[in-house]
Write a protein that binds this DNA or RNA. Sequence first.
DNA 1: CCTCTATATTGATGGATATCTATGTATGGA
DNA 2: TCCATACATAGATATCCATCAATATAGAGG
Lengths: 115, 115
Amino acid sequence: MGERAVEMLELDDISTCCASGLGEPMPRRTAERLVPVLKAVADPVRLQLLSLIKSAGEVCACDLYEPVALSQPTVSHHLKVLTEAGLIDREQRGTWAWFSINHERMGDLVSLFSE
Amino acid sequence: MGERAVEMLELDDISTCCASGLGEPMPRRTAERLVPVLKAVADPVRLQLLSLIKSAGEVCACDLYEPVALSQPTVSHHLKVLTEAGLIDREQRGTWAWFSINHERMGDLVSLFSE
DNA sequence: CCTCTATATTGATGGATATCTATGTATGGA
DNA sequence: TCCATACATAGATATCCATCAATATAGAGG
């Protein structure tokens, strides 16, 4: 072994274009669990909604239609997507639905890209 | 003004369900500029590719087909999406294409969710 | 109960996209 | 110059999704 083994390994590397000692990729399950959260955030309207909710601390749905200039059902749809992704929390107060940022889930995204 | 103005403002607030003093949302342009980057990351295969590239430091395309179990054109497509989003850098070396993480763009995502 | 009002759901439609096969391009070696 | 190899592009298809109008649900007040 020693020198010789290393040499053979290097020759093998050249024939396959590079060292095939890649680590395992992120498990498919993990990736598929992250995707709904990332898709939720990969929409211009939902980014605007998140920024509105974050800056206000708490907002009721009725105040969100006008800033994004979309119909009530469409905004309701986007709020549902964000809620199901866990990015915002929903609280019912009488007739109104109030939304706020889920900072824990937001932190998950930070650690995904920073670590 | 004074007391009276405040009182009228509060009544107005109640009739519209809550204080309408929301800040401006993230500008539409800004949101639309971010979306391609977030969409690039909102795919299970591309998350796996990113993790492979990050752990290896540098990888050539030929070593990426097998770990994600997809055809060469499909992986080529995903690598193009990631490259155009600026998330990875591409370097041609002879016949081979080598990819590495663009940490600056990755940092943009971190700051988007953390600040 | 009945009627507003706030929000959710449904159904339809146009547009985006993930994947494949087949083909093109370009590089390096004999 | 010719062939083999690495990667990209084109075309086709199936699926997903953003949006709206219309309708349903549900809570508050009279």
